[in-house]
Nucleic acid binder design. Sequence first.
DNA 1: AATGAATGAGTGTTCATTCAT
DNA 2: AATGAATGAACACTCATTCAT
Lengths: 207, 207, 207, 207
Amino acid sequence: MSASTSTQSASRAPRQDNRRQQLLDAAARLFRERGYHVTSMRDIAREVGMLSGSIYYHFSSKEEMLLAVYEEGLRHIAELVDAAVAARNTPWARLEAGCTAHLEALLELSDYTQVMIRVLPPEGGKVAARLLDLRDQYEARFRGLVNALDLPAGADRRYLRLLLIGGLNWSHVWYHPGGDPPAVIAHRMIDLLRQRLDRAPNTPSAR
Amino acid sequence: MSASTSTQSASRAPRQDNRRQQLLDAAARLFRERGYHVTSMRDIAREVGMLSGSIYYHFSSKEEMLLAVYEEGLRHIAELVDAAVAARNTPWARLEAGCTAHLEALLELSDYTQVMIRVLPPEGGKVAARLLDLRDQYEARFRGLVNALDLPAGADRRYLRLLLIGGLNWSHVWYHPGGDPPAVIAHRMIDLLRQRLDRAPNTPSAR
Amino acid sequence: MSASTSTQSASRAPRQDNRRQQLLDAAARLFRERGYHVTSMRDIAREVGMLSGSIYYHFSSKEEMLLAVYEEGLRHIAELVDAAVAARNTPWARLEAGCTAHLEALLELSDYTQVMIRVLPPEGGKVAARLLDLRDQYEARFRGLVNALDLPAGADRRYLRLLLIGGLNWSHVWYHPGGDPPAVIAHRMIDLLRQRLDRAPNTPSAR
Amino acid sequence: MSASTSTQSASRAPRQDNRRQQLLDAAARLFRERGYHVTSMRDIAREVGMLSGSIYYHFSSKEEMLLAVYEEGLRHIAELVDAAVAARNTPWARLEAGCTAHLEALLELSDYTQVMIRVLPPEGGKVAARLLDLRDQYEARFRGLVNALDLPAGADRRYLRLLLIGGLNWSHVWYHPGGDPPAVIAHRMIDLLRQRLDRAPNTPSAR
DNA sequence: AATGAATGAGTGTTCATTCAT
DNA sequence: AATGAATGAACACTCATTCAT
């Protein structure tokens, strides 16, 4: 988690944006563990052996740190999902691969991606809009994935996407490391959607 | 605001715990609007025309207020869901009615219920465990509702429940008042599950 | 200076706005001695045996304290000047009495009035405008006093007022307690204006 | 901005202490505009495209910068006043010329000179005494100018000087660029002193 | 049942200054 | 001659909480 032990290759060279990255790692972890408001700049600084004031050399405010974490998290999860999707070729397989990658990033791989799900942006802040924008931008992928499916006439693609994304994202509430791995979770959920669950003959339609 | 069946007896002492209820209403609203950490005791007190110190006559701490809001919210949503479910008699209809009631409480009816979804419990606090407990207790209903369904052999009832609950709860992220009403949302999502979405002949099973 | 030892008359009764007044006294003194920016809220609090946060029960911000000091100072000096002026009846005597009272308040009597002269209002703040307004309002008195004089035709009343006020106010730079008292200073300065200083016969006019 | 006669010689090393002068110019401007305490070293550095730490190659502290600004401002205004005075030959004309030059420097020409009037020296600092010393030294000129006047017997030369200097210096409070130019202001004020203002026959003397 | 006044720890942020490079 | 990075102390201000009245 959070590549802190970055095997400092050669000499003791203080690499370029060394500390900024460390700070971001620490912020991502603390934001995820405790939430944005409860985490103080002092907490973050202490984590990397700095004083709180020193953070401001690297970031101009706490909100800007959150934004940076969001952006980094988004870049990361988007890459993973895109790669996973590209490796498959039938629509359902591509969707499932995307879901699996999404879940893996969310549940296991990185603090950054979890922040995106768990931290609701600070209300009044000017960053709030930007954060929601980033999230939308990312989720657009799933719109494409769902649109590519060959569905029966009446199926509502929009709610299919929302149901699936919600089901996946909510996993942070009930998931625990010992349980089914992300791939299994994603597979099972998609399976439920692909097959007919209602065994009664009458079509479930009219309200 | 928010039902709170305060059996208001006829006689001279009509408002047994008047102010406590007002405080709780204010807290629920502010917790929902701004989040738990951003809302201050002063904010809550001001809302009912009190000074912040006076709250402590009614509640022993801010966390205890959150707990009370959770409990009240839970009692409320549980009542609504139970009533809605009782009015139907086929398993799928009962599930859908439960989902509709759940969504309505979540999105439209009461600040109390929304707090349950939007406010993640304060980390270190001793209440955190209790809050999760309450939530589990409530969701147990849906376990029952799903278990009552007549499903095909391979269907995973646990993930069906988690997918559905997640899909519903995540709605607070994308829902906006002008859009489809809760009943429509619930209906559409359940519809997606009941019917076969995969039009290909081969069973979607092997991974 | 600054009526701190207010012979706490009867019992130990914590009189009504006791502490607010103490705080204001301390603020006035420190603002005068060190200037606004250099004085910290901690300094002010320490002076009255409080913690810095406690000030905010009485004042909502540091700027508001400054405003309160200005207002109090202004009320005070205006009262003194008005009373002194009212006791005389020829125009020159009234002007001189006003100047004496102004100087006394400025140099000897109260921290509050000195703040008005020595502290230039914090630039960006919203109070700046209000403070200048108060100052103008006060100085209007002198406009009246000068207008009442029976002057030769060419005399510029506006610059007479500005010269006099400037001469008086600048005294805080060179005044020291052992020297001439305010009454003497005011008398000498006015004297210089009343009499003809230029002994040459030609009128000092054309430039 | 601000004359600073930096005799820029032709050859290859044109800018003997280029950056130091730029820094001083920036400091003078900011000190005048915002005041000493409100101006940060970062502000000054940014103005010349430097980092704040780099200033310390040129100046050993912020206070030293202020001292340098004072000194430069003083040298400048003294030169202007001396030149203006030298061009006249009657005592009153010399005084008026000096006042005009003083006002011009103060109100229009240079940030450096304005700092001398507007910035009150930081209290505790060791520079405070030195700054006052410089100011006295400069004002000594006006002592000479006043002493050269042929005045009536009772006229108090000291207060004449203080009244005049105060009246001039206080102009920074009420002066605004569109109004009368410095020459007019100085002329009017001196005029008021030269002529007899009190039209009553009795000498204004006894206290 | 509530107020007025305060506490004490903590908040995000700013600052003059330092120093190895 | 200047940078990049950091320090450590300070800043104005906020907060949940307490308690005598």
